[in-house]
Amino acid sequence: MSKKILIVDDEPNIVISLEFLMKKEGFAVAVACDGEEALAKVASFAPDLILLDVMMPKKSGFEVCETLRSDPANAGMLIVMLTAKGRDTEVAKGLALGADAYVTKPFSTKDLVARVKTMLGIV
């Protein structure tokens, strides 16, 4: 059974590109365009890994990450934070809140795919 990936971003064009990229690699993909929708999709879709944008309306990526990590049921879920802000403090904050990796926009598609695969143990 293929691994499931949830893509969360408020930029539709980024969602389009990530969705295409991940589907092409054979992952099952679901998308959400804000933090609240992301939490709902986590419950229904039960992804193995989340690509989570930081700057979003309604609920920021940090908040989503914190909420997910507070529930032990999601302990095995991998979270990759995506951000267009590259400050060190943001990276540190994301990792402190329980994210497994931090990727700065714009990213190399090759690197991102390799990273996701490594994290999911598919090499």
Binding site: S17, L21, A84, K105, P106, T109
Partner: peptide, 25 residues
């Protein structure tokens, strides 16, 4: 500056991701 960076990186992200995919496949 941090905000401007964010605003500039966001469109760049789509452009880079899509053009890399078109280029490689």
């Amino acid at each position: 500056i941090s905000t401007v960076t964010h605003e500039l990186r966001t469109p760049l992200t789509s452009i880079r991701a899509l053009s890399e995919m078109l280029h490689e496949d």
